[in-house]
Amino acid sequence: MILIMKKLSFYGLCFVVLLSSCVKKPAPEPVGEAKFRALNATSGSIAQDVYFNSNKVNIAPLAYGQVSAYQTILSGPSYFGFTDNGSTIANIEIPRAVKIGEHITVLYYSLPNGSKNVGFLVDDMVAPATGKAKVRFVNLNGFFLDRFSVQLVGGAPIVASLPYENSSAYAEVDAGATFKLLAQGLTSDPLINANIQAGKIYTFWVDGTATELVTHVMIQN
């Protein structure tokens, strides 16, 4: 009986080995280059150091309103963080999966209660039509309770209603276009004249107060 049991155990072991050799492992996720840039949109903040996957990015500290150049990274699950210049204590760190070939803008901004947040914009790098520019708008004003719309001066609205912590789709406009921000509760309707040039891609981000919208511009290309 002892010899038979040993023989059966040996055959069983062979069967397990053969079976395991037939099980296919999932193919690893492909990895490639992507790009990101960072914006400090937190008014009154200390200049920020930027971290990617817990490693400090080799760029100058970003003061309020400053945006970095695009940095090349590898795609895949990632973490983006911000610290006060010279500190290693994160003000915030947020995960995001980055796709191959993707261009993203990482926004560091404050919530109305003073806590910090990070948002991500996917940047469309496709050139606009000949003679046109592309624009989009981002609402980062948590103190202004109403949504705002964006109208071409002398033309139609290009953004109907933009709530807080949202971005509009891109719109193509003529070179030299100017815009107005419209909303109830504003002390005035801000006029935006950014010297729009054909072939360029613009992101306008808006912060301010409970009665004022302040516009800033980033150029992608």
Rank of each mutant, 00 (worst) to 15 (best):
M1H: 05
I4F: 06
M5H: 11
M5R: 11
M5D: 08
K7P: 02
L8K: 08
Y11C: 10
L13I: 12
V23P: 01
K25Y: 09
K25C: 12
E29F: 10
E29V: 14
V31R: 06
G32V: 10
K35E: 14
R37S: 02
L39T: 08
S43C: 07
S43H: 10
I46R: 05
I46K: 09
A47V: 06
A47F: 04
V50W: 01
F52C: 04
N53P: 06
S54F: 13
V57E: 03
P61T: 08
T72E: 08
L74W: 03
S75V: 08
G76V: 04
G86I: 07
G86Y: 05
S87G: 07
A90G: 09
P95S: 04
R96M: 07
H103I: 03
I104S: 11
I104H: 03
I104T: 11
T105D: 11
L107P: 01
Y109W: 10
Y109V: 01
L111N: 15
P112M: 06
K116N: 10
K116R: 09
V118R: 02
L121G: 10
L121S: 14
V122R: 09
V122T: 15
M125N: 01
A127R: 08
A127D: 13
A129M: 13
T130C: 11
K134E: 07
K134R: 15
R136E: 09
F137I: 00
F137W: 03
N139K: 01
D146F: 13
R147V: 07
R147A: 14
S149F: 08
S149N: 11
V150S: 01
Q151Y: 06
Q151V: 15
V153T: 13
G154D: 06
G154H: 11
G155A: 13
G155M: 12
G155Y: 02
I158R: 03
I158D: 01
L162R: 00
Y164S: 01
E165R: 15
Y170I: 00
A171G: 06
A175L: 13
A175P: 07
G176T: 14
T178A: 12
T178R: 05
L182A: 12
T187A: 12
T187L: 13
T187D: 13
N195Y: 05
I196E: 02
G199P: 02
Y202S: 02
W205H: 01
A210V: 07
T211P: 04
E212N: 08
E212R: 05
H216R: 03
H216G: 00
V217Q: 13
M218P: 02
